[in-house]
Design a protein around this nucleic acid. Structure first.
Lengths: 205, 205
DNA sequence: AAATTGAACAATTTGTTGATCATTCAGACT
DNA sequence: AGTCTGAATGATCAACAAATTGTTCAATTT
């Protein structure tokens, strides 16, 4: 049992090593196998495809980010401050990753093509902590009470989408993006502070 | 003089016809020339490159949209309603275009690659009318006074970016996107209704 | 029996060749 | 003199062949 998980993590580690260095496409199953002292065929007893290895890789990385998010959500500070810090750190880590090793971007791209639902899972996971912050904000009186915190969390994600997609801002610098994000957060947090009347006028008109 | 502009528009119209039907890549300069009863070389007296034709095409289309935006901004209705209508119609036209003729998407993609600043011009143009709406909202008392309406307009664009990029929501349906946009607009408009304290805590920390 | 291999297969990528196309420009036409 | 053409050029694209690579599985090893 421990054997099995051991070889699995061994394969994963070898794959991470190679993929981070040479990229996903340029890493072959045969190479990963050789690094682990086994045949390519044998990898398939632990991962059912190459893309599955990339997914496992992303899952691991994501778990770490998620633990930081949990710590942030449950740590000290007011809800608005946490909300700012949450989105700002998301922007910064994405940007830094893009800068330092572009290989990770390739993995992200392949994954979003081959495993379309994966990104959704990530966002849902992130929302858990956004909801925590929102609820803290409500109970502290910084945010107006809300019917469906998860929906509001979705809206926060939608409104800050620009700061998540490297492809979109290729041309923009981090300071410029940070300033923009601050501006958007100012607006959104101001919005959260007042009771929202769900717009029925639009439907009626 | 009139001759010159005449042939120019003739070339442009022939190009639009073909590009809309066959797409940008599949339309050749020789074909456009033949449609106009001239040689391919001669087109270059009117457009300095093929991509310039696409740009002229986009400029024309954009001017029409812009006139509608101007009409909307100066027409009747409260500022918040106009703001909703503005973004909603942007989403709807983009989505419909994507659905009806995917050819236009090809042109958009080529343009954003070859003429990176073009999209910025479009957005700046759009902001003119967003600012008009914002200022109306302030004078009517729906929105809190703001130092820099153009900056706020930029933030509105940033926060609604998700609803502008077809590539991003490939999987989402129009009704779902509309509901999301309404949610985001609710938040943003609520934010506009209260005075925003520019966050200096972030810089200090 | 369980784990592993390596040959076989299918899919994908890469390399190559020929054609097509955007662009230029010297000269013909008006 | 100002328009326009069509051949020349270099870049890009399409199609096909060869090579590489992901994946499977019968045979082998442990």
């Amino acid at each position: 049992m421990t054997d099995k998980t051991d070889t699995r993590t061994q394969i994963l580690e070898a794959a991470v090593e190679r993929i981070m260095h040479y990229g996903y496409a340029k890493t072959t199953m045969a190479e990963i196998a050789k690094d682990c002292g086994m045949s390519a065929g044998n990898i398939y007893r632990f991962f059912s495809s190459k893309i599955d290895i990339a997914e496992a890789m992303a899952r691991k990385l994501n778990m770490e980010i998620n633990q930081k998010n949990a710590a942030l959500a449950r740590g000290p500070g007011t809800a608005p401050d946490k909300m700012r810090a949450f989105h700002m750190s998301a922007l910064q880590t994405t940007f830094t990753k893009l800068d330092s090793d572009a290989k990770i971007l390739e993995v992200a791209e392949v994954l979003s093509n081959e495993r379309p639902t994966f990104a959704n899972e990530e966002m849902a996971q992130e929302r858990v902590h956004l909801v925590e912050i929102l609820e803290q904000g409500v109970s502290e009186g910084h945010f107006a009470p809300m019917d469906d915190p998860n929906f509001i969390a979705e809206m926060m994600q939608a409104a800050t989408m620009k700061f998540r997609y490297p492809q979109l801002w290729s041309r923009l610098t981090l300071p410029k993006l940070e300033r923009e994000l601050v501006g958007v957060m100012d607006l959104l947090l101001a919005g959260l502070s007042v009771r929202i009347k769900v717009s029925e006028m639009m439907i009626a008109e």
